[in-house]
Every structure is written in structure tokens, then in C-alpha cells.
């Protein structure tokens, strides 16, 4: 089954994403910010990444830029999962190379459908 890296500075969010994805049979690795995520991504290859935008140390958009600069993550699906409401951030994420945008609070079924789509 596919492996997914979830990045969020809020522990409960990580738990909810992990719970939803585990339940659907995905193997999930959690990271609390961009730096941790980048380290994890360098350590092992993930099939998809779900990241928050507003995080300490390294935000989600910077993380996308960093990941896209790595050859093995050039085409990996990266979804932004955020409470961010600015269209400018959405545009910035798209330009950074994000695959999609999901607004919090996420609906588990919707999240799974999106993951299924991007993995296919």
C-alpha cells in the first residue's frame, strides 16, 4: 500500500489525518514542520505528501519548493491542507509546485478521494 507523509504543527491534526489514512490502508509517517518533513523525505521515498502551510521553522510552501528541487520528489503529489483563506497563498502554492489544495477542516471521505485521484 502507498506511503504518505503528513506534515502539520498541530498534533491533533496529524492524528486525524493519520487515523483517516491508516483506516484506508495507507502507511503514514508524521512530521511537525517543514524541516522534519524534509529530513523524513530525504530518508525514505513517499508516494504522496500532505502538508499544512502555516508552520514554525519551515512553512508548507517553502517545503514544497525544497521538495520539488529534489529529483525524487519532482513529480510526487503534494497536497496543501490548510485553514489559509488567501487566494494569493493558493496561487503561491501552485507556483511552488503543489499538486492540490484542501481547506481545513477536511472531510475524510473527500481527502481519501483526492489521495486516490492523485496516486492514480
Amino acid at each position: 500500500m502507498a506511503t504518505i507523509l503528513t506534515v502539520d504543527d498541530t498534533a491533533s491534526m496529524r492524528q486525524m489525518i493519520g487515523f483517516t489514512l491508516n483506516d484506508a490502508g495507507y502507511e503514514v509517517t508524521e512530521a511537525a514542520d517543514g524541516n522534519e518533513a524534509l529530513a523524513a523525505a530525504r530518508k525514505s521515498k513517499f508516494d504522496a505528501i500532505i502538508t499544512d502551510i502555516n508552520m514554525p521553522n519551515m512553512d508548507g510552501i517553502s517545503l514544497v519548493r525544497e521538495l520539488r528541487s529534489l529529483p525524487e520528489y519532482k513529480f510526487t503529489p503534494i497536497l496543501m491542507l490548510t485553514t489559509e483563506s488567501q487566494d494569493s497563498k493558493r496561487k503561491e502554492s501552485k507556483e511552488a509546485g503543489a499538486t492540490g489544495w484542501i481547506v481545513k477542516p477536511f472531510n475524510p471521505e473527500q481527502l481519501l478521494n483526492v489521495i486516490k485521484n492523485v496516486l492514480n
Partner: peptide, 22 residues
């Protein structure tokens, strides 16, 4: 520490869908 401040509430309202694949 983990927000970009007032820009959020004063930001341009989100006109896009809740889920969007670029």
C-alpha cells in the same frame, strides 16, 4: 509563532473551492 498575523483576517476572501487539484 505559526501564523502570518493579521493578514489572515484582513486577507482577500477565499474565492476558490475547498478542494482543488492544480
Amino acid at each position: 509563532s505559526n501564523n502570518d498575523g493579521v493578514s489572515k483576517d484582513n486577507a482577500v476572501p477565499n474565492s476558490g473551492p475547498n478542494v482543488e487539484l492544480f
